[in-house]
């Protein structure tokens, strides 16, 4: 975990630089959800493991934002018991049906558009793109966002050019064998839920905490 964070600090992060449009939060505020159900992710990437890995990164930032977040692994088990083994089938269910099944105030659907690594000259470039849609229990869409992120090793360190080239080749080979997507996935969720221009409003537990601090 610590090495993953270190790796993230050592690379150049580049998100979307286009000036995002601030979305209207009135539907979200009207629904005022206390609890959020995160259903398994639909996967459009070629990596079959991506949905489970991404699923692990979503609950913590959302709960820290002040919502009750339904336990994702338990949710998966319940859905499978109901016969939903495929995320595509879950996503095709109306939000109201899922909200009712779990008694949730809101349902979050995440699609993995990209989760890939490309070997570019001497560095490996890792790209993730997630799409998020949240619905209230009556089926109204209350929030959505798309996040595209990319990283590649930073080549600007000192040292002899040959040594530098060797280091880069070695780190690229490692990254190619097991590209480390997780810090990027965590960063994407943090930006989307917490620090981005369309971050969701604070949930009831955080609001209560803020009130106490005052």
């Amino acid at each position: 975990m610590r090495s993953a964070i270190g790796a993230l600090a050592a690379v150049v992060l580049s998100g979307c630089v286009a000036q995002p449009v601030k979305t209207d939060m009135s539907a979200f505020q009207a629904a005022a959800p206390r609890s959020i159900l995160i259903v398994p992710m639909v996967n459009k990437s070629l990596d079959v493991d991506a949905p489970n890995y991404v699923l692990t990164t979503v609950p913590v930032p959302l709960a820290e934002k002040g919502y009750y977040v339904f336990p994702v692994n338990t949710t998966k088990m319940v859905l499978e018991q109901e016969g939903f083994y495929e995320a595509d089938r879950v996503h095709s269910q109306p939000p109201a049906t899922l909200a009712k099944l779990f008694d949730a105030d809101a349902v979050l659907y995440v699609t993995i558009n990209r989760w890939d690594a490309k070997y570019v000259v001497i560095a490996t470039q890792v790209t993730v793109e997630f799409e998020y849609h949240m619905f209230s229990r009556d089926g109204t869409k209350i929030w959505s966002e798309v996040k595209h992120m990319q990283w590649q090793p930073d080549n600007n360190s000192s040292g002899s050019p040959l040594a530098q080239l060797l280091t880069t080749l070695v780190s690229a080979a490692i990254a190619r064998a097991a590209p480390n997507y997780m810090p990027l996935a965590q960063q994407a969720n943090r930006q989307v839920f917490v620090i981005g221009p369309n971050a969701i409003p604070d949930g009831p537990y955080r609001a209560a905490l803020n009130q106490k601090a005052r």
Partner: peptide, 8 residues
Amino acid sequence: VPPGLYAE
């Protein structure tokens, strides 16, 4: 205990 941990 954080949300969900008992249930997990």
